[in-house]
């Protein structure tokens, strides 16, 4: 793979995504962890742009950074006494780290061409190894998504169910969070 502008951008955004993610799980200060989450989400938005999914990139910023992260920040402010914390990880963290390293190792073996050589199995043979084989996107994605949402052959039922899910989440959250309701 030659070092194109696209590849450089990919590495920058991946570094943002993974570095931010790592900081989220290791930062002691929970407010900073939330800020790093935003950085990580922003990196993911960049990856979406590279994958020619600009709609999802914009939505990522609008919904994740602009709404979900704000909600979490509100929650951090509402639950005080977090500042003086010294221990952020529980006792089982070495085990958890080990398990995740093993999982990541297995995934690496399965996904990468190098892993295929080691295992002697060709797990990733069905994946396009060279990105140039990826076909061009020739349509306007937003309109296609809209068509998929609102036609019977597409996703009209999930579309309505999402609305139901959001409404029930709204009602549930209000019921749970209000002060005067007994829990």
């Amino acid at each position: 793979m030659e070092l194109t502008w696209q590849a450089i951008a990919f590495f920058i955004f991946s570094a943002l995504t993974l570095g931010g993610g790592f900081a989220v799980v290791t930062q002691r200060n929970i407010f900073h962890a939330a800020l790093f989450l935003m950085l990580s989400l922003f990196g993911t938005a960049g990856l979406f742009v590279l994958l020619i999914a600009p709609f999802l990139a914009a939505v990522q910023v609008l919904v994740y950074i602009g709404a979900i992260a704000i909600l979490v920040l509100f929650a951090i402010m509402l639950t005080r006494r977090l500042m003086g914390l010294t221990i952020s990880l529980n006792q089982q963290w070495p085990a958890a780290a080990l398990a995740m390293l093993v999982l990541f190792g297995v995934l690496l073996l399965v996904l990468t061409p190098v892993g295929d050589d080691i295992l002697g199995q060709n797990w990733s043979a069905n994946l396009p190894t060279d990105g140039d084989t990826a076909p061009e996107v020739t349509y306007i994605t937003v309109r296609e998504i809209g068509v998929a949402f609102s036609t019977q052959n597409g996703f009209v039922l999930p579309f309505e169910i999402v609305s139901l899910l959001l409404t029930s989440a709204l009602i549930g959250a209000i019921v749970v969070a209000r002060e005067d309701e007994a829990i």
């Binding site: 990541f104 190894t129 990105g131 990826a134």
Partner: peptide, 12 residues
Amino acid sequence: MVPLWMYLVVSA
């Protein structure tokens, strides 16, 4: 272009 497995590794 970046091969697919790189995206999958980042995601993993």
